[in-house]
């Protein structure tokens, strides 16, 4: 695609399982595009320089900082945000565990953290606490001290493993 600095380009992405299109100048950050063009305001912006992790989304399944990506770079790719996690207003196991363990207060960091956890649990299905803390170190939370998150992630990992075992036993 040939781009000009002052021109807006149509960007097509698969956002949370749906085809979406919006316009973006070449310099527009992906987080701004997702929030203000497409309305997925669950994506939060805390630093715009890649440290806090609040803006984390999945790009083709990989947890990525949407403040460090341009919207044009997301063209024709798959983006998943926090809005994709629940089905019919029923929260997934991770979201429910976050609530049970009081893993959020203001909730501003939470969307990004959930997305990293989603990807992490796929890669590392039975992590230990050190691994969970290490994964969370890519995020800043100012409210909680992380305790509840660590408990929630470990609990979900264990539950998923147990379900897996049960299902296998059923077969």
């Amino acid at each position: 695609m040939h781009v000009r600095a002052d021109q807006r380009f149509p960007i097509q992405i698969e956002l949370n399982g749906r085809q979406r299109e919006g316009l973006a100048e070449p310099r527009m950050q992906l987080c701004d595009f997702l929030r203000h063009e497409l309305g997925t305001t669950g994506v939060h912006v805390g630093c715009e320089h890649g440290v806090c992790g609040a803006c984390t989304v999945l790009v083709d399944g990989v947890a990525s900082r949407s403040c460090l990506m341009l919207a044009v770079q997301a063209h024709e790719r798959r983006i998943d945000t926090v809005e994709s996690l629940s089905r019919d207003n029923i929260m997934n196991d991770l979201q429910q565990a976050f609530s049970r363990h009081h893993a959020l207060q203001c909730g501003f960091c939470t969307a990004g953290i959930l997305m990293s956890c989603v990807e992490f649990l796929e890669r590392v299905p039975s992590p230990d606490e050190t691994q969970v803390r290490d994964m969370l170190s890519g995020h800043l939370c100012r409210c909680t001290g992380y305790t509840g998150m660590v408990r929630a992630v470990l609990e979900v990992a264990q539950q998923r493993q147990e379900t897996l075992v049960e299902n296998n036993n059923d077969v």
Binding site: V82, E83, L104, T110
Partner: peptide, 9 residues
């Protein structure tokens, strides 16, 4: 929590 966890804050 329900709103905040689902990106509806």
């Amino acid at each position: 929590d329900a709103a905040l966890l689902q990106g509806q804050g």
